[in-house]
Every structure is written in C-alpha cells, then in structure tokens.
C-alpha cells in the first residue's frame, strides 16, 4: 500500500516538473523594432525600439516577475515588475516593451537598447529558464522596419529565427498577420446555403460515433454472455457430479443423515418458521452518532444556578 502511495507521489512530482506558473511557457517574443525614427511613439512622445510579447494560450498570463535581457550571461537583467495589473496578458493578446534604457519611466520601459544588443531573451520568473530567444541581425535592421513572426506565436524558440521574417509594416500590440474577418459560420453560409452539406456531415459523425459504440458494446455483450454461459455450464457440471454421488449414496448413509438431523433438531429446538415479523410499521434503526442531529447542532447553553 505504501509503495503505491510513493509511486503516485513520484508520478505527481515528475508530472509537475514540466509545469510553469501561469503558463509562462506560452509567451513568445513576437516582433521587435531596432531603429525607430518614424514609427510608434511611447507615452512620453519619444520614439525608441520596442519588443512585442504574445500570449499564445487561451488563458491570461501574468508576465510580472519574468525577465527580459539582451545578455545570455545575465538572464535577470530586467525584471518585469510584479503587481502591475497591465502585466497580465489576456488570451491571444500582445504587450509591448520600450527598449529605451530608461526603466524609471515605468513597467514597460526596459534597461537596455536594441541598437546595442545582439539578442533578445525572455526568461521565466525562476531566472534560469529561457522561454524564448531571438538573434538580432543588425545587417538587415533598417529604420522603422520590424522583424517578427510570420504567424503570431508560431516558430522556433531557440534563437534560430525559424518562422521569423522582415515585416512589411510594423504592427506593435496587434497581430502580425491580419486574420480573415469572416467567421466560420459566414463561410459556411456561402458554401452551404441550404445546410445540406452540414446535415450530411454532422449526421455521418453522429452515426459513426454511435455505430462504433454499438459495435464495441455488442462485442463486450457477447463476451459477457459467453462468460456467463461458461459459468452456468461449470455450475451444471458440478451439479451433475453431485447428483452422481447422490445416486451412489447407500441406504445406510441416508439413515445416518436422517438420524443426525433428527437429533440436531431435538437438541437445539430448531423450528421451521423463523421468528421474523412482516410489518408495515416503521422499523427502528440502531442509534448512530453519525446520523444524530444532536452532534451537528450547537448545544443549548445550560442555565447554571448560583448557590
């Protein structure tokens, strides 16, 4: 029993090793701009390079306590302050950091500039785990031209730049790829105005699901019937054997059994009808403290008489 518990505990611990608080591992570096002369400007009206993070998950992720750095040797260079409500990135949304080396200006102003950096790293709150990294290729960095993931959040996280490209236009805090605004529902209306394709597809799926279930339980049912049949056969065989033995029993044995039973009844005063009573009256159950309301209620304070 103890071994089972230990195995379960080890299993739980092993499973939890890969987990990160609030799914920090779902965050990605999504786009960055190195030289900003005529692009987006911060709340102070200044133009600086910026880094965009993207939450790839369908849950809110708080990046407070995580780190941004441009130095693989110093992974905790800029800690994103904790406790700022704005560091909570909503599902499939972005957040923007200004690389102006002016951290006093607020949570979203980091302490290095991209012009002086060769790489950007996003590090988990443990200060050790690199969640995402990307190399900065200064040879292709042009003013006001950003570098980003072709499809938001998709591509390498090892710095190789797979899935990254020079963006046709900058898109800070918005999607790099403009999604088709038409919903599935509207597309379906164009393709299938009378719902015939939908009806055939959906009914096929419903039937397939229930046909598989039917086949499985037909098979399980057959197995169960066979098993039951086998058990019945075994019981029948045993009964046959018993009957066979019964036939071989001699008259003396019958007489001995009858005498033994007679003596047993005489001695113990057994009777044919048990002392059970059939009644429609409510039966009384044995008292149990588990069902007692007394133990669930607060006791009434006792009035103590003064002497």
């Amino acid at each position: 029993m103890k071994i089972h518990k230990i195995i379960i505990l080890i299993g739980c611990l092993t499973a939890s090793l890969g987990l990160h608080a609030q799914n920090i591992s779902d965050m990605r570096l999504n786009e960055f701009l190195v030289i900003n002369t005529d692009d987006f400007e911060d709340d102070y009206g200044h133009k600086n390079g910026w880094i965009e993070l993207f939450n790839t998950s369908y849950g809110t992720v708080d990046v407070g306590g995580c780190f941004l750095t441009n130095d693989p040797g110093n992974l905790t260079k800029y800690m994103i302050p904790k406790g700022d409500v704005l560091t909570k990135v909503k599902p499939r949304q972005h957040t923007l950091f200004w690389a102006d080396n002016l951290p006093d200006r607020g949570t979203f102003h980091i302490n290095f500039r991209l012009e002086d950096s060769d790489e950007i790293l996003f590090v988990s709150s443990d200060g050790r785990t690199i969640v995402d990294r990307i190399k900065i290729d200064h040879s292709i960095a042009s003013p006001n031209v950003s570098y980003g993931r072709t499809n938001d959040g998709i591509g390498s996280t090892d710095g190789s730049g797979e899935g990254w490209e020079i963006m046709k236009k900058t898109s800070p805090s918005t999607n790099n790829v403009i999604l088709d605004g038409e919903s599935n529902s509207m597309k379906l209306k164009k393709l299938d105005p009378y719902g015939i394709i939908m009806a055939i597809t959906a009914m096929s799926v419903v039937f397939v699901a229930l046909i598989i279930l039917y086949l499985l339980f037909k098979w399980i049912g057959n197995l169960s019937i066979k098993k039951h049949q086998k058990r019945s056969d075994d019981v029948a065989k045993q009964n046959d054997k018993a009957e066979h033995k019964f036939e071989e029993t001699s008259a003396e044995a019958y007489a001995a059994i009858a005498l033994a039973l007679h003596l047993y009844r005489e001695e113990t005063e057994l009777h044919d009808v048990e002392n059970t009573i059939l009644t429609i009256e409510k039966s009384k159950k044995a008292y149990s403290p588990w069902s007692s309301k007394i133990y669930m209620l607060r006791e009434t304070p006792q009035l103590r008489k003064r002497n």
Partner: peptide, 24 residues
C-alpha cells in the same frame, strides 16, 4: 443489453439538421 438501439438515437438527431436547413 441491446446496443443496436443506439442507432435510433442517432437517427432522431436528423430533426436538428432538418430544422437547421429550414432556419437558414
């Protein structure tokens, strides 16, 4: 005990998709 009855449960769902087409 009689799993083939599941298929009737599947067939009756046709009402959903019939009404879907009419609603469209």
């Amino acid at each position: 005990s009689n799993p083939k009855l599941m298929l009737i449960g599947a067939a009756a769902q046709f009402g959903i998709f019939g009404a879907y087409g009419i609603a469209l």
